[in-house]
Design a protein around this nucleic acid. Sequence first.
DNA 1: CGCAGCGCCTGAAGGC
DNA 2: TGCCTTCAGGCGCTGC
Length: 266
Amino acid sequence: MPELPEVETIRLQLAPRLQGRRIRDAHSHDSEKFTPAKDAIGTTLQGLNRKGKYLIAPLNDGRELIVHLGMTGSLAITPEPPGDPYIRAWWQLDGNEFLGYRDIRRFGRIRCVSAGQYDAIPTLAAQGPDGLSPEFTPEGFYLALRNSHRRIPTQLLSQKPVAGVGNIYGTEALWMAGIHPAKRRISRSAATSLHAALVEVLEAGLANGGTTLRDYRNADGGEGSHQNALACYGRSGQPCLRCATPLQHRTYDARTLTFCPQCQPR
DNA sequence: CGCAGCGCCTGAAGGC
DNA sequence: TGCCTTCAGGCGCTGC
């Protein structure tokens, strides 16, 4: 599922190819999640930015085209109109190329809004600093975590203490920092460790081109390789790579969390 | 206002 | 073999 490293991989691939391109036409699935793709017809793409898991393309009329890939979304440029049954939207660009949005489970969404007006996208409006930005600091992270009494993984998934982290990279970072997923409050030093672990795992995921477990593909249709580097996520029952204790998994707040009962004490 | 709970979606995998 | 159930999970929405 596209988290920060996957979305950034796609952004890096698409940004130079979309810069300055005019959107001549667009089509979309009937769902209101995707029909706003057509609101961008006639505009020119002025770049491709990212905030957390959101891709944000500034348009030449003062608006922004915003794409969230959800669980199974992907983007690709093709020389023909994409015909895949899971294409939920596509844009015809000048030069007769097509930007296709494919999303099997339709958990993603597309919006076209005035630049910076994110009231219709509450998670984007309320999200914290991007995990790979200079604004993501240990002290700010610690203070943000102190604002809530929810479990630490749940706070991470809320995108408020940090933007761009999902269950895969969150699980990895908690393992790296030795923090049990049931914890609700952690010390300043533990928050500092978790901050460093998050930055490390997000950078590693990006360097590996993302994590492909099943559906994730980059803009060239290629797979990432970070699934081969996962130490904790998806390894329940297998030995901890630090202490050889079998990893366990439990459901917290409707999310499956894998952890090492030895390295991540309650 | 914070947050718990549910719904959205589909394909894979496991049970019978 | 084939049907049914369960699971995966980011995020929006509702209601307490």
